[in-house]
Nucleic acid binder design. Structure first.
Length: 496
RNA sequence: GGGCCGGUAGCUCAGUCGGUAGAGCAGCUGGCUUUUAACCAGCGGGUCGUGGGUUCGAGUCCCACCCGGCUCACCA
C-alpha cells in the first residue's frame, strides 16, 4: 500500500524544510536544543506579578511573536499562564548569541537569563543576557491575529487551539480549578472520595447501551461502566457514610452538541439523607464552584441570554410545570384532547405512546429548554424513573429531583431505594426474560441491609457548559470524540 | 438518513457577468539597537476538496462523491 500524504502537508513541506535548516544552523553554532531541566524564576505570569525593576530572572516559553530591528529583537514568550516580552540586544548577548537568535523561529521553545526592565512604552520586559534553545518547532504556528478558527483542527489538534486561542487555555484552566473546588467542597462536607470499577461484568445503574470489551485472561466480556451507582451503594452497605466518585462514564450513543460518549460524572451518596438533603448539597456545591472559580453568579451565554444563579432556586413539581405550559386542565383531558392540545402547541404525537410519554414530549420540547435559571423539577412520574423510591402520598410519582440550568439537565437526585425485595422485583422486571442481566451480586449486598440514603449525580461537562457559558460539549472537553478518519481522510465504512 | 451552509497559499479570508489566482499574517533576502498587528524595500509560495460533464475557455455553471458545521430525525 502506498502512503497518501496528508493533503494539508503538501505546502507545509517548505516550511518544515526551512525550519530543519534553521535547526542545523543553530546546532552548528553551538545552540543545539538542550534537554535537561531549565530552572525558571517562575512562570511568565509570575514574572509579571512579582516584577521588580532590575531583578535577575530566568524565564522560558514559546516564541509567539518577534520584531527584528537590526541589532536588536523584541519577542514575546508564551507559556500556559501568559505572555512576557523579552529584548535581545546585540550589545547585551554578544555577537554569536545574537547571530544564532536569527534562527530562532516562531514556535520555538527557549530559555533566557537576564534582568527585568520597563520599556519606553511601559511594557515589562526581560533584557536577555543569555539564551538557549529548549525545543525546536518544525511546523509553523497558526496565524497570530485571527488565531486558529478551523473547527476540526481545533478539536483534532487541541494543542494548537490552546496555543493560539488564549481564552481556550483560560477556560480549561478553570475547568481544572472547578474539579478541585468540587473535591474540596465535598471533603469539607464530610464526603470521602472512592474509585469503583470502570470495567464491569454487567453495566448497571442507568439505562444505556454500554461499550463491550474482551477480557482475554478470564475469557469473558466486560463492559465499560455506564454509571458507578451500584458499586457506590455497596459501599453504603459497607458503612461509608458520605461517599462520592468523580470520574468517567461511557455510553454507546451518538455524538451531538450535548453528548460525548465518555463524559465526567460526579455521583454522591449520603446515608440517612434523601432527595431534599441532596438538593441542598448540590445547590451549595454549584454555588461554591461558581463563586470560587468563575467569580460570578450571572453568566452570559453565547446566544446573548444570561443564566442567573441567584438564590433562592425554584423548586416546582413536574405536574405543575406541565399545567403551566400545556393548560391547567391538561391532566383532566381525555387522550384525544391531550393529543389535540399537544399538536396545537407544536409537539409530535404518536398513538403508540403512553399518556406519560405524551406528557414527557411536552416537557422535553416545550419546557426543559426554557428553564434557564436553576430549577429543581420534583415528583417525576414513576414510569420515567423506575428505580427510585415512590412518594409516600402518591405512588405514581417518585421522590426525586431533576436540576435544570440553562435548559440542560445538570443533576438528578433521588431518595434511594433500600428495600432489597422491591429492588429485586424491579431489576427482574427491567431485565425481562434474561436472568443473566440481573446484578445478583448487587442484590446480595442490599440483602445485608442498606441505610436509607439520598443520592445525586452532577454532569460535570454540562455544569462546565453552564458555568463557562458554552453551548457545545466539545468546547468543555479537551479531546472530544470525533468521527474517525483513515489515512485518506475518509470516514471508515460502518456495517450494519 | 433528510434539509441548509461551507471546503481557495502554512493560518485568516477575498475572488464581480465564465476570461486563465489575490490580500493580510507567516516564510525568504536586505535595512533599522525601546518595538509591540513594528516599520521600509524586494522575492518565493496554489491538485481552488475529489472525479466527471457543459464550454473556445470553469475557482465560478451542471452531476456524482469525499470532508466539516448547523439543524431535524434516530438513540438515550
Amino acid at each position: 500500500m502506498t502512503t497518501t500524504p496528508d493533503p494539508h502537508d503538501l505546502g507545509a513541506d517548505a516550511y518544515r524544510a526551512q525550519r530543519i535548516e534553521n535547526l542545523r544552523h543553530l546546532t552548528d553554532a553551538g545552540w543545539a536544543p538542550e534537554h535537561g531541566a531549565f530552572v525558571r524564576t517562575g512562570t511568565l505570569a509570575h514574572l509579571a506579578a512579582a516584577y521588580e525593576e532590575g531583578k535577575a530572572v530566568r524565564a522560558a516559553g514559546r516564541i509567539v511573536a518577534r520584531r527584528d530591528m537590526g541589532k536588536s529583537v523584541f519577542a514575546h514568550l508564551q507559556d500556559g499562564t501568559g505572555r512576557f516580552q523579552i529584548y535581545v540586544k546585540k550589545d547585551a548577548v554578544g555577537e554569536a548569541a545574537f547571530a544564532a537568535f536569527k534562527f530562532a523561529d516562531l514556535g520555538d521553545l527557549i530559555g533566557v537569563e537576564g534582568t527585568l526592565f520597563t520599556t519606553r512604552t511601559q511594557e515589562k520586559t526581560v533584557q536577555v543576557a543569555t539564551w538557549r534553545l529548549l525545543g525546536k518547532a518544525l511546523r509553523p504556528l497558526p496565524e497570530k491575529w485571527h488565531g486558529l478558527k478551523d473547527v476540526e483542527t481545533r478539536y483534532r489538534q487541541r494543542y494548537l487551539d490552546l496555543i493560539a486561542n488564549p481564552e481556550v487555555m483560560a477556560f480549561f484552566a478553570r475547568r481544572s480549578q472547578a474539579v478541585k473546588a468540587i473535591r474540596d467542597f465535598l471533603s469539607g462536607e464530610g464526603y470521602q472520595e472512592v474509585e469503583t470499577p470502570m470495567m464491569q461484568p454487567l453495566a448497571g445503574g442507568a439505562t444505556a447501551t454500554p461499550f463491550a470489551t474482551e477480557y482475554h485472561a478470564l475469557h469473558t466480556t466486560m463492559y465499560l461502566r455506564i454509571a458507578p451507582e451500584l458499586y457506590l451503594k455497596r459501599l453504603l452497605v459497607g458503612g461509608f457514610d458520605k461517599v462520592f466518585e468523580l470520574n468517567r462514564n461511557f455510553r454507546n450513543e451518538g455524538l451531538s452538541r450535548s453528548h460525548n460518549p465518555e463524559f465526567t460524572m460526579l455521583e454522591l451518596y449520603e446515608a440517612y439523607g434523601d432527595a431534599r438533603t441532596m438538593a441542598a448539597t448540590v445547590q451549595a456545591l454549584i454555588l461554591h464552584v461558581a463563586d470560587t472559580v468563575f467569580g460570578a453568579r450571572r453568566i452570559p451565554r453565547e446566544d446573548g441570554s444570561e443564566v442567573d444563579l441567584a438564590e433562592p432556586w425554584r423548586t416546582v413539581s413536574y405536574d405543575d410545570l406541565i399545567r403551566e405550559r400545556a393548560g391547567a386542565d391538561w391532566f383532566d383531558l381525555d387522550r384525544a384532547g391531550r393529543e389535540a392540545r399537544a399538536r396545537e402547541l407544536g409537539c409530535e404525537t404518536d398513538p403508540a405512546w403512553s399518556d406519560t410519554e405524551l406528557t414527557q414530549e411536552v416537557f422535553e420540547k416545550l419546557i426543559e429548554r426554557t428553564l434557564v435559571n436553576p430549577t429543581f423539577v420534583t415528583r417525576l412520574p414513576a414510569e420515567l424513573v423506575p428505580l427510585a423510591r415512590r412518594c409516600p402520598d402518591d405512588p405514581s410519582k417518585v421522590d426525586v429531583f431533576e436540576l435544570i440550568i440553562g435548559g440542560w439537565e445538570i443533576s438528578p437526585g433521588y431518595t434511594e431505594l433500600n428495600d432489597a425485595l422491591d429492588q429485586r422485583a424491579r431489576l427482574e422486571a427491567q431485565a425481562g426474560h434474561d436472568a443473566t442481566r440481573v446484578d445478583e451480586d448487587f442484590l446480595l449486598a442490599l440483602e445485608h441491609g442498606m441505610p436509607p440514603a439520598g443520592g445525586a449525580g452532577v454532569g460535570i461537562d454540562r455544569l462546565m457548559m453552564v458555568l463557562g457559558g458554552k453551548d457545545a460539549i466539545r468546547d468543555v472537553i479537551l479531546f472530544p470524540q470525533l468521527k474517525a478518519r483513515d489515512a485518506e481522510g475518509r470516514k471508515p465504512k460502518i456495517d450494519d
